[in-house]
Nucleic acid binder design. Sequence first.
DNA 1: CCTTGACATAAAGTCAGGTTTAGGTATTAC
DNA 2: GTAATACCTAAACCTGACTTTATGTCAAGG
Lengths: 145, 145
Amino acid sequence: MYTIGQVSEMFDLPISTLRYYDKEGLFPELERKSGIRRFSDRELEALRLIECLKKSGLEIKDIKQFMIWAAEGPSSYSDRKALIEARKAVIEAELAKLKKALDMLKFKCWYYDTAIRDGNEDRLREMIPDKLPPDIQKLFDNAHA
Amino acid sequence: MYTIGQVSEMFDLPISTLRYYDKEGLFPELERKSGIRRFSDRELEALRLIECLKKSGLEIKDIKQFMIWAAEGPSSYSDRKALIEARKAVIEAELAKLKKALDMLKFKCWYYDTAIRDGNEDRLREMIPDKLPPDIQKLFDNAHA
DNA sequence: CCTTGACATAAAGTCAGGTTTAGGTATTAC
DNA sequence: GTAATACCTAAACCTGACTTTATGTCAAGG
């Protein structure tokens, strides 16, 4: 069992954030001893999942729904699975977008390297959009797809 | 040359957002014809980069600084390159975090598949944390690292 | 005893990034 | 000529996710 201060340290989250999550209903089974929160391994695992669901763009109120389902037991397995599956798809899509953004930034890095070497963008303007070196062309095409 | 409505369609962005970006100084060289904005290829490429920089978590006011540099010409190449390089590093870090979150969700998918098949979590509780099937163990370990 | 530190609450405040509203202009379609 | 569209501005408004503030409780150490 852990105090809010210990959990705050473990997860590198402000205490105020943990209290906010609790107030929003993200720990429906959280125990208290004379008013003081006592976080168990169940809450730590919940917190790990909360961070992943947040990364998937899920809102707090929808994370709360998940945690309520979890407190309800086996009857909600399929609801929980459906939600996780949906957020997995969102993250996969987000990963693809992020890779595209990364290719744009890699292209721009090469672009400015070249511009710095040349002192201007004249040569670059002649190579864009389809006369770039093969590896750079791939970055450019993906970033502009 | 494109009107704001055409750009809105091309990028699937609300007109209000494009006007907001303009008001925030993201298109310092945007032309107007009797008050009406005329977006050129320069602004379209800026917009593509804006979307990538936003994905990297860069704030509007810092994107504005970049666009001001771009309008200043070759003297700012190295400033621009440094900013792009820094945001590339941020995206690479974000990609790693997102993959970790994805592994957590993949693990939870398997978890609920199993719980649904078993009707309870008894067997799962015995396998966690280190007696999982090898491929699942990898997901679990990465998600809990 | 009294101060320090960790815990607690409710309610107000903050912030970025838009969005909406209210009111106006300019061109084209009938 | 007037109605529909597409454009314009300034300023108010909104939202989610915290964070801060003001106030209070409680246990341990000197």
